[in-house]
Amino acid sequence: MADPRAITAAPDLESADLALVLLTVEEAARRLRIGRTTCFKLVLAGEIESVTVGRLRRVPTEALPAYVTQLRRRPAEAA
Rank of each mutant, 00 (worst) to 15 (best):
D3F: 09
P4Y: 08
P4G: 00
R5H: 05
R5T: 04
I7E: 01
T8N: 03
A10V: 07
P11N: 01
P11E: 02
D12L: 13
L13E: 01
E14C: 04
S15N: 06
A16H: 05
A16L: 15
D17R: 15
L20Q: 14
L20D: 06
L20E: 07
V21H: 13
L22K: 01
L23G: 01
T24C: 03
V25C: 06
E26N: 10
E27S: 07
E27Y: 05
E27P: 07
A28F: 08
A28Y: 04
A28P: 07
A28N: 02
A28I: 09
A28H: 03
A29E: 02
A29D: 01
R30N: 04
R30Y: 06
R33E: 13
R33Q: 11
I34W: 00
I34C: 06
G35L: 08
G35F: 06
R36Y: 10
T38M: 06
C39P: 01
F40P: 00
F40K: 00
L42R: 12
V43T: 04
V43P: 02
L44H: 09
L44C: 00
A45W: 08
G46E: 04
E47H: 14
I48A: 00
I48G: 00
V51K: 08
G54N: 06
G54A: 11
R57V: 13
R57Y: 08
R57M: 11
R58C: 02
R58F: 05
V59Y: 05
P60Q: 10
T61H: 12
E62H: 15
A63C: 12
A63P: 11
A63Y: 15
L64M: 09
P65C: 08
Y67D: 01
Y67A: 03
V68F: 10
V68C: 12
V68G: 03
V68T: 12
V68H: 05
T69R: 15
T69G: 10
T69Q: 12
Q70V: 04
L71N: 09
L71A: 05
R72A: 12
R73Y: 13
R73L: 15
R73T: 15
R74N: 08
A76E: 10
E77Y: 04
A78F: 04
A79K: 06
